[in-house]
Design a protein around this nucleic acid. Structure first.
Lengths: 346, 346
DNA sequence: TTCGAATATGAATCCTGTC
DNA sequence: TGACAGGATTCATATTCGA
């Protein structure tokens, strides 16, 4: 990065090492082993060593950024807080933090934490008083059903045909990002012809998307194998026509509403009774979002299945709340919540 | 917080000042003024001053936390990165970052950034090696259509009747959090009877929810007006019945049953054959509660692992007994013993 | 060839009680 | 405190396998 001229880059996208600190091996419930990110480039002696590394590249990045340039940095809870604090210390000015919500994250196999289902991106300008940075507000809004783009984005992880493989059929890079994510970043914060720098180029997702979208790019990478994979990949990319540069919209789906949300919304109270349509069974609602018949407590689905002697049951349609003479399926209460959510995507 | 005894708190929920740096008033497109958070308690001279404040309260919080206690801190991009880095520096161990996605966030009026539609919570244990912290995995899963709870939560902001107002009808606190958010936090990470500390109590959302859910709480607040609003609010809260507060627990909480108990109960006989679900392997039960293939005898787990060439195996679900045409997992026989035990103790 | 079943896998700081 | 062993634990998607 030192070789680049100062004030020459419009946007930086950086996916630095996350400094994961893994204990032993992790196995799925079927006893298969999870392929951990244990590469040497992700190992640091201490937080201090990681901070020194972070400040060094952030400082170099700030030098090459144009006064109205902006920077994106992606990370997880392992590193993003340290990175963010360093960015503020060095004079970057935060514009947003943006959450990449994964449609298909890896589960938490041991059931000891919440499923780690998102990563965080920081979007910042070079200086606190920078006003002229690029933000294609109208294009984003138009591509988002004419409502302004939120700070939480929904994309699948990079897999299938998009995921680069080596000769042996293994993933070429352990942390390849989806092109859809980069496309939104670039379409949001650059103009055609701008120069995008990626100081942790890896297998070149940033370069591939930049080329396709008619932006120039500079990639920096240490590992030969990654460089070769990136070069082959980018050579195969066809730039789009100027007229075709439109936004890939994020996926929209019905959000999953936990039964607990009915409690939180006050539509059902802890201690309330649920019955089936014919009033044959009655269960009592508990504060934790399970229901109970006697000592037997579980989800609305499991208890519904159990009383009927079935393997499965849709508790949303099976269970009802009584309001005066009539019974209302709890699915109708769920629909009320969904209606209230409006355009918020899953 | 200095007055509290050390190692006395199960969970801390903290909503510290956000250190917002607003350059002048913000107006909506219709020229109405946005009611910004510009209270005196939210003003800091510099990042250094904010960091010193943050480290001081985080340090005091860590002293009062039990060894297996956990802490939640909520913030926005203005402060959460500094807070998170300080937490790591002080020895807290991050378990998750959790994103609160707002169904109805304030729009970005200027159209110069993404709509700031989420806040970030950090959930951390006191020490890196703390394994015994409370996480009600099974209850959360059962309340969420039987899939594990993710790190991105969807809730409306606090408004309407839930939002506390002062005598003049203005909001009593500028950043009142929704009770639904606190309910999920408390249900996820505490047991009934636990003690929850909120060092930035404000108008007492944490206390109100803790009281309703049968948890004890300690609130710390400097502003008299907030204290009075919180006291009145919490006095009006009715705790839920103990029966509604029972937490769902999974197999982990079930009493251990040695395989030998199946022999003693006559559910399996010495010399009987066990097979896996597909009938690929067969082992013979021995009177001492081990099973054997040829001369090779060990526990149901070790033999199951060995035949599959794996390091581990749950013998309870792997091995089956034949009854006529069908195979019954020995786990079902174990369940019969547990049911019988429950009947006795109940 | 087709369809359903079985297998593979992803930035993961992922167990607990007893001797 | 360390070693040992019991046995609990997964969601969405893509690909391969088998009938």
């Amino acid at each position: 990065m030192e070789a680049l001229p100062a004030d020459s880059i419009d946007v930086i996208f950086a996916d630095p090492p996350y400094n994961l600190q893994l204990g032993g091996d992790l196995h799925r419930p079927d006893q298969s082993k999870v392929d951990a990110v244990d590469d040497a480039w992700d190992q640091f002696e201490s937080f201090q060593a990681y901070d020194a590394f972070t400040r060094a590249w952030l400082l170099a990045a700030r030098r090459v950024l144009k006064p109205n340039g902006t920077i994106w940095v992606i990370g997880s809870y392992h590193n993003i807080f340290r990175v963010g604090a360093s960015m503020q210390d060095l004079g970057y000015w935060m514009l947003n933090d943006v959450v990449w919500r994964k449609t298909n994250p890896m589960p938490n196999f041991r059931g000891r934490r919440f499923q780690n289902a998102h990563e965080t991106m920081i979007w910042a300008s070079r200086d606190a008083d920078a006003k002229g940075y690029t933000f294609n507000y109208d294009a984003l809004k138009a591509s988002n059903d004419d409502v302004q783009m939120r700070s939480d984005w929904l994309f699948p992880i990079c897999s299938g045909a998009e995921r680069l493989k080596d000769e042996a059929g293994r993933k070429a890079h352990p942390t390849q990002k989806p092109e859809a994510l980069l496309a939104r970043v670039i379409l949001a914060s650059t103009k055609p012809g701008d120069v995008v720098l990626d100081p942790f180029f890896g297998t070149g997702t940033t370069g591939a998307v930049a080329k396709r979208l008619g932006r120039h790019f500079v990639g920096i990478e240490r590992e030969d194998a990654y460089i070769q994979a990136a070069e082959a990949r980018i050579a195969a990319v066809e730039p789009l026509d100027a007229s075709a540069l439109k936004m890939a919209a994020g996926k929209r789906a019905e959000p999953r509403i936990p039964f607990a949300s009915l409690l939180e919304a006050g539509l059902v109270s802890p201690g309330a009774e649920l019955t089936d349509a014919k009033g044959r069974w009655t269960a009592r609602v508990r504060a934790d979002g399970t229901i109970a018949i006697g000592e037997d407590a579980a989800s609305i689905h499991r208890i519904g299945a159990k009383v009927q002697g079935l393997d499965a049951c849709n508790g949303w349609t099976f269970w009802h709340v009584r309001s005066g003479e009539s019974l209302t399926p709890i699915d109708a209460l769920r629909q009320r919540i969904r209606d209230a959510l409006g355009a918020v995507s899953a």
